[in-house]
Structures are given as C-alpha cells and as structure tokens.
C-alpha cells in the first residue's frame, strides 16, 4: 500500500512536472582533475598539504545535524575555494532529516549526531556508510547569575536534571531556583547527554522545564532566564557572541575543552557522523577525503571548536 501511494504520487508529479526526471540533484562527473587546484583562499594549511586536494567537479548537497552544520559549511566553503567547478550545498534540518534524506537518495551526505541504527530500521541502516569526520563536545552552561558554581559532577547533574535538586544552593550556588532548558527528545545533544551523563535516570518534566529546539534558541533562553541551565555544543559556546553571556561548567572537574575531548578525559562528547548511501563516489568521496585532510582536520576543526579524529 505504501508502494502504491508512492507510485501514485510519482505519477501525479510526473504528470504535473515533466522535468521531474531531470531533477536528481547530483550530477557529479567522476572525471577527477589531477592538476593541483590553486589554493587561493587557503588559510594556514601547509602549501604541500593544500596541493593534495582532490578536485572533482559537480554538485552535491548535504542535509542534517545542525550541530555539524557550521563545520560542514566551512569545509564546503574551503573546498569551493580550492576547487572551482565543485559546489557543496549545505542544508540543516536536523539529524533525522539528514538520515531520511540520504536514505531516500535525496541528498548525497546526511549528517547525524546519532548513529543511523538508532533511528532507522535495520535494512535501511545497513545500506548507509558512516564516515566519522570529527569529535564534537557539549558543555553544560548556566545563566551568569548562577555564581560560584563552576563544576557539576555526574551525580550532581543527575540530581539537577531529574528534579531532585531544584535550587542552585543545593549544589553550592546562590539561593535561586533551577530552570532546566532541555533540547527536544529527538536531538543528538539530548540523546548524547542522556546516554553519557544521565544514564537510566528519568528527566524532570513539568512547568519548570523549557524545551528549545536549537543551540541559538537555547543560548537566548539561558542568557535571558535567571537560574537557567542547559547543554550546548562547543562551537556555539565558544562563539564570540555567546561566550561572554554564559557560565560554562566543568564536568566531574574536567574542563570542557577540545584537548580534553581529544584525550578522552572529558566524556560529554560523540562522533560527528556523515552518512552516504553505499560507498561514496565522485565529488562526495573527494569532499569526504577533504574533510579528513589536513586543512579541515588541522585548521577548520579547531577553529570551529570541534575535535579532530585520530587517523
């Protein structure tokens, strides 16, 4: 029946828009040019490294995780600058969208904070190939008025986020009610935080709980709400517009830094996954190689506050 519906819709579309057949958004020409691209906009990567960029002409689209979007965007801009004739269009939409779209073949790369097999049913998930391009870290942040709190242990976090502690004075802070700002249940941030920090504990619900669907909205909510606490990605925390407005906390006494994510001592971190349907080919493969290359791993990733992946 689903197939029937789909065929029906495909017919309907074919009838209304004849061009539908031409709309497959990927037209990567596999002819890789071996000539080194002119590294015009290269920032600080070694010239020899920049020369190794494998330029393939064509156009691909990525969709998915908004947490990975800034990194993919910057990588795409750098690839675009290195290789004329290649266009990588980066769209967001959320991890679920990324997985759905790459699975459906609507985009070439689907970005996700969570593993495909946690979201998609097995047969679909197995056809997707995971490319881990970075580590991403999250940090617990509070409103500036939560003075005197610089660290929360895992147990304190559990108490705070399950509603056992309702006032900051219970964890060494001022006499101020705690306002929890969650991410939506489906978000990678919330899933990672639950898995690594909260474990099997049940998160608090009710009137004191806000849910904001994005790093930007969370930042606004935390900065404007007394006693607010939330979790945001490093790239958003380290953004010059946000950092002065937020109070970033240690986790179990460990600083939330990229270095600590890299060494494994800071545990609130996860892989950034880029998925392709089957093995990557053409421009998609070249772009993924570029993301693993020295310019992205060595320069762009640290600049955007992600962690490089060890080879």
């Amino acid at each position: 029946m689903i197939n029937g519906m789909r065929r029906f819709s495909a017919l309907a579309i074919a009838a209304t828009v004849v061009l539908a057949a031409c709309s497959a958004s990927s037209t990567p020409s596999p002819a890789a040019t071996d000539t080194p691209a002119a590294p015009t906009a290269m920032t600080s990567a070694a010239p020899s490294a920049a020369g190794t960029v494998n330029c393939v002409t064509g156009s691909i689209t990525t969709a998915g995780s908004t947490a990975l979007q800034p990194l993919i965007q910057d990588a795409a801009t750098a690839y675009d600058a290195a290789c004329s004739g290649a266009t990588v269009t980066v769209t967001g939409g959320g991890s679920g969208t990324g997985l759905s779209q790459v699975d459906a073949g609507s985009v070439q790369i689907g970005a996700s904070d969570v593993l495909a097999n946690t979201k998609l049913a097995t047969p679909d998930a197995d056809t997707l190939v995971d490319h881990v391009v970075c580590r991403q870290g999250w940090i617990v942040v509070t409103n500036k008025d939560v003075t005197g709190v610089t660290n929360l242990t895992t147990q304190q976090n559990i108490d705070v986020w399950t509603g056992v502690d309702t006032n900051w004075k219970q964890v060494g802070g001022p006499d101020l009610p705690i306002v929890l700002i969650f991410r939506p249940q489906g978000s990678g941030t919330r899933a990672t935080f639950k898995k690594i920090v909260l474990g099997s504990a049940t998160e608090a619900t009710g009137g004191q709980v806000l849910t904001e669907d994005s790093n930007g909205a969370v930042t606004t909510a935390v900065t404007t709400t007394n006693g607010a606490v939330s979790v945001i990605g490093f790239s958003y925390y380290n953004d010059p517009a946000n950092k002065p407005l937020l109070n970033g906390l240690q986790l179990d006494g460990t600083d939330a830094t990229i270095a600590n994510v890299g060494s494994g001592t800071y545990k609130l971190a996860a892989d950034g996954n880029l998925y392709t349907k089957g093995a990557a080919t053409g421009l998609t493969a070249a772009f993924l190689d570029f993301m693993m290359g020295p310019q992205v791993q060595g320069t762009i990733i640290p600049k955007d506050s992600y962690g490089p992946v060890a080879h």
Partner: peptide, 15 residues
C-alpha cells in the same frame, strides 16, 4: 511538529 520533524526519520512511529 516544527520541533521534532527534523529530529525524526521518515516511517518512524515518532514521525
């Protein structure tokens, strides 16, 4: 709907 659409995949009960 706005909040969850992007975080779920097509065909999942949640979506």
């Amino acid at each position: 709907i706005t909040l969850d659409m992007g975080n779920t995949v097509f065909g999942e009960p949640w979506q």
